[in-house]
Simulated assay, not measured.
Amino acid sequence: MTVDPGNGARVSSLLIGGTELLRQGPRYGCFPMVPFCGRIALGRFRNGETQHQMPLNSPPHAIHGTGRDTAWRVRHSDEASATLTYELGDPWPYAGLVTQTFRLTADSLELTLGVETASDSFPAQVGWHPWFRRNLGGEDASLAFAPEFQLERGDDHLPTGRRIDPLPGPWDDCFGMPDGVDATLTWPGQLALTVTSPARWVVVYDEQPEAVCVEAQSGPPNGLNIEPELVTRIQPLELAATWSWQRL
């Protein structure tokens, strides 16, 4: 595993048996989504009576937080683990500390993300956006998961507020998994990789031919507005996820 602190503390490479699992390039790999996941409608969110405007980096919306565009600081690193941090600041309107940890074993990668506030409470989300290669040199990967529902997506790519029965792909959609995320990508005859997390939400994006994204996250798209979760001095926001794999 290779982590790039200067490019959003993303996992830029994950080799299993010499095979690269992640789409390569400075925008890809697997990046942390923090302090929000997916799109914020028109880049605006409220904290109580105060409205904030984020940069529209996916016009007309803001998308995927600020952590992926930030240089992180390495606090610890050895052959099998690492801890990186960055301090929240402009354009995010609140002070705080984000911590991401990695623990690599022979058959798994354990990830954690945490957000602490340095002053006022604020809404936040965390998650990961991996770009898994659709094809590793054989058949394309297939995805198996059993969500309880899908959030209906409007023409603006934001949830309409309706929960619907899961539809067939291709997807750029958010699914509810109240008992936790459990999704398996299988490359026939090669590898099976399972993403698990206590998170109740997973976004699947497979509209590009090169990759399949399985994004465990603490809240849905536009969640700062429709399902805010507050980070306070006594209650940080924390999330874990595990990728486990086996050769076939």
Rank of each mutant, 00 (worst) to 15 (best):
L136A: 10
P209W: 10
L113Y: 07
P26H: 14
R200I: 01
G137R: 02
S77L: 14
Q150A: 10
W171I: 00
W243C: 07
G137E: 02
T160N: 09
R103F: 01
G89T: 02
T66P: 08
D78T: 01
Y94F: 15
L230V: 02
R46C: 03
V204C: 15
N135Q: 05
D172S: 11
C30W: 04
E210D: 15
D182C: 11
R46W: 00
T186P: 04
L158P: 01
L84V: 10
D206G: 04
V115C: 11
C30N: 08
R75L: 15
E227L: 05
F31T: 04
T242A: 09
Q235Y: 01
P198W: 07
L56K: 01
N47F: 00
E215V: 01
P26Y: 11
T66E: 13
T19E: 08
W201P: 01
G219D: 15
H64Y: 06
D78Q: 08
D120V: 02
A80G: 03
N135T: 05
A240M: 06
Q190N: 02
S218N: 13
R46D: 05
L191G: 09
P5G: 10
P221R: 09
E152L: 10
N47P: 01
N135L: 04
T83L: 08
A146D: 15
L21D: 02
Q190E: 12
T85D: 15
D182S: 10
G89S: 11
S13F: 02
D206Q: 05
P130M: 04
D172Y: 07
P170M: 07
P130S: 12
Y86A: 09
S12G: 14
R46E: 02
D140H: 08
D179W: 01
S108E: 09
F145V: 03
I40L: 15
N225A: 13
F36C: 10
G180V: 08
G18F: 08
S13Y: 05
L42H: 14
S197W: 08
W201K: 09
L97V: 15
S244V: 00
F102Q: 03
L88V: 00
P123H: 02
R162P: 00
Q53Y: 11
H64W: 05
Q208D: 15
F132G: 08
G169E: 13
W245C: 13
D173H: 12
E227V: 00
L42C: 07
T196N: 12
A216G: 04
